[in-house]
Amino acid sequence: MTCRELTAFIADYLSGDLPPDSKIEFERHLDVCPNCVTYLDGYQDTVRLGRHACDDDDAPVPDTVPEALIEAVLSARSKPSQA
C-alpha cells in the first residue's frame, strides 16, 4: 500500500468500514511510515476539532438580529397566505 492509497482509505479506516485485508495493509504501512502516522494524527485531530467547533455557547450568535428581518418574518406571517 502506498501513501496515496492509505490516504484514500483513512475515512473508511476510522469508521471501521475498511475490509479486514485492507485494514492489515493499512496498519502495516503505518508501522513503517511515520509521515503517514503524522498525517493520520492530524486528520483525526481535524475531525475532533471540527465536530466540536459549533457546540459551544461562544459560537458567533449575533447579539441582535436585524429588526428588519424580524419585522419581515412577522409581517409575512400576517399576510393572508392561508388562501
Binding site: T2, C3, R4, T7, N35, C36, T38, Y39, G42, D45
Partner: peptide, 16 residues
Amino acid sequence: PTFKTDGHHAERFRDW
C-alpha cells in the same frame, strides 16, 4: 495532499 509518481507523499508532515 499531493503525491509523487511512486505514490509517496510529496510533503513531509510535522505534528501540529
